[in-house]
């Protein structure tokens, strides 16, 4: 089985304009034992949230890197505890979301998200959206520190067929995607990956995110994927 793990993160026009850091973070890992991907979106109102998002993807990786079996439903609380502990519970300036996925060498694993963003899945050829549809308004997010008191979206997954995979993205992307086009979006990413090296795929994603076309978009944009290629 061959999996491809790719991600890209670009600073949004608003942070470019204000000379602020990219508050999103992406973490990727791939070895013979499996693949890991995570994205995180630091809260704009917190001055050190870019560090909080970076810490979140690192901790998610640390928790999952030596596990061949992933208990997806236990992950939000575990990640939240470890993340808060890493700041000695003084985390107010670091608040962030986090979306992660991990599969072992046979494609079995878990996926989950805390806060805004979007998780798209294809398993055994069947497309689905993990993320619960929002009833309220954009950018009203749950954060990693609130995980233990709120429900998170998680799922056990198995990527078995070529074309199967997981796409994780922050809300700078997901809030501007046409809801009826999510499967076609997933397929376009996959089909491009089929023709590209990892490095070219990353450059292509960065260019696409830099040239985002939604009028007046301002947010940072981050995407990561684990795709089964053959």
């Amino acid at each position: 089985m061959r999996f491809q793990v790719v991600g890209a993160s670009v600073k949004g026009p608003a942070h470019e304009q204000d000379c602020q850091p990219n508050q999103d973070a992406v973490g990727l890992a791939n070895n013979s034992k499996g693949c890991f991907a995570a994205v995180a979106d630091g809260l704009g109102s917190r001055k050190l949230s870019h560090l909080g998002s970076q810490r979140a993807v690192k901790i998610a990786h640390n928790i999952l890197k030596n596990r061949s079996i992933v208990d997806a439903s236990a992950m939000p609380a575990r990640l939240s505890r470890a993340w808060r502990h890493s700041f000695k519970n003084d985390f107010n300036d670091y608040e962030t979301t986090c979306l992660w996925a991990k599969v072992n060498a046979s494609g079995k694993g878990g996926v989950g998200q805390v806060g805004d963003g979007l998780v798209l899945l294809r398993q055994s050829g069947r497309f689905s959206v993990l993320t619960t549809q929002k009833d309220s308004f954009g950018n009203q997010t749950t954060t990693l520190s609130q995980t233990e008191s709120l429900t998170s979206d998680t799922a056990d997954i198995q990527l078995t067929l070529p074309g199967d995979g997981v796409l994780l993205m922050t809300d700078g992307i997901s809030d501007d995607l046409i809801p009826e086009q999510l499967e076609a979006f997933f397929d376009t990413i996959y089909n491009h990956q089929k023709r590209c090296s990892k490095r070219r795929m990353k450059r292509w994603l960065q260019a696409e995110l830099k040239n985002w076309s939604t009028p007046r978009h301002g947010d940072d944009k981050t995407i990561a994927s684990i795709l089964k290629m053959d």
Partner: peptide, 14 residues
């Protein structure tokens, strides 16, 4: 040419 533009909403967020 962008291949992802066709999936992006072409209206600013209200």
């Amino acid at each position: 040419m962008s291949q992802l533009k066709k999936f992006q909403v072409q209206e600013a967020r209200p």
